[in-house]
Nucleic acid binder design. Structure first.
Lengths: 208, 208
DNA sequence: CTCTTTGTGATACGACCGTACCATAGTGGT
DNA sequence: ACCACTATGGTACGGTCGTATCACAAAGAG
């Protein structure tokens, strides 16, 4: 059996198992034995590829964000080439809502990691700051573009609106997660604000 | 030593200790021995007044929300009798932001409990649904009042705006918690939306 | 003054968890 | 063909955690 094996591949497989089991039981309740069982490997192997649980958790977060980035990318690509700023923003926001199993898991675990990072300084050093900032900048730029081309309310503060949309989306996601709100009502609230920011044009892409 | 003792008082003392130590180490990391040490009692006593850890955690959540309710009530009272709808909303929202140690602890623990409730069905049955709904209704009513008296934009959807304000505030709180945003910038974003919803009138002397 | 109840201490138990250690089979290098 | 190294299994160790048990002192009831 000991043929040379791709470490990155194995690590990904194990990280995936971590995410699966953590999504089911909660991040706080996952042990290395659970991860091993989920991945179909022995406990020793999890130790072998990640020396410590802390490292495993770090890599799990990394993998989680990577997967989410890929997911958003795929949605953007599926929206066709150059959809308008509004359609782009819609894709970005809606991709973040926990509407299917994958996004539900993502939202739960990302929230768990965030909360954990408040009291765990080692986690706080991880990529929690970069990603949200990037999203904020992207949305700000999209709104600015729309304003310059007259497709959005020129009186709106682009950055504040971007921050607000992201903030709303985040809480909406958690509300959906805990069963306090339906995805539909969350989407409706977001659309309300997009309608407010963007001049009434159809959402449709630039077909033809 | 065994003179008759007030159970409720002791339970409150222990619940307080739970909140203190959980605010420091994170809810996931708190054990019954930690709580006992923080409260200055023996482990046995924690067992005596709460039979199980689960019950202790439930009561901790209860105590946490009670304390928060009292805090908000005090802030409202401090705002004087009948401040306008906008000032009232400001008090409600700003009281939720983690600006001092107490609110920081509250926000951290409430978030922790929420996340926990996603994968723990026993917790999910606790008062997570009632409270946010009450806040949402209260804000909606305040905005409606302002609209009827011409102090707020009549074209706004009161309920959606209420939901949005609360949602934004929640995420802002978490962002402050993880050090990603300053309280000042969070308040500025909230004020931006209040300025949008309410007709330009003075804010009334409120903020602390 | 006894007896029962209440409050409290100390400590033991069994489970689990992360980590470390030992062994070994296969594989590539020379 | 040997050797060294990689990948993997099995298992043991020390610690901690929630809970249970035993013991007992003080206080109220009769």
């Amino acid at each position: 059996m000991p043929k040379r094996v791709d470490h990155d591949e194995r690590r990904t497989q194990i990280a995936e198992a971590l995410i699966q089991v953590a999504g089911r039981q909660g991040l706080h309740a996952v042990g290395m034995r659970d991860v091993a069982a989920e991945a179909g490997v022995s406990l020793r192997l999890v130790q072998y590829y990640f020396q410590t649980k802390e490292k495993l958790l770090f890599h799990g977060l990394q993998h989680l964000t990577d997967r989410f980035t890929a997911r958003v990318g795929a949605r953007l690509a599926a929206a066709g080439p150059d959809p308008g700023p509004r359609a782009t923003i819609e894709v970005l926001l809606l991709a973040s809502l926990p509407t299917d199993e994958e996004s539900r898991t993502f939202h739960l675990l990302y929230s768990s990691y965030s909360i954990l990072s408040v009291t765990d300084e080692a986690l706080a050093a991880q990529p929690f700051i970069d990603r949200p900032d990037a999203a904020e900048n992207a949305l700000t730029e999209l709104i600015r573009q729309a304003q310059e081309t007259g497709r959005a309310d020129a009186g709106a503060d682009a950055r504040t609106e971007a921050i607000s949309l992201l903030a709303m989306t985040a809480t909406m996601g958690t509300s959906i997660l805990v069963g306090q709100r339906t995805p539909e009502s969350a989407i409706a609230a977001l659309q309300y604000h997009l309608d407010r920011i963007f001049n009434s044009r159809q959402t449709a892409p630039t077909a033809r």
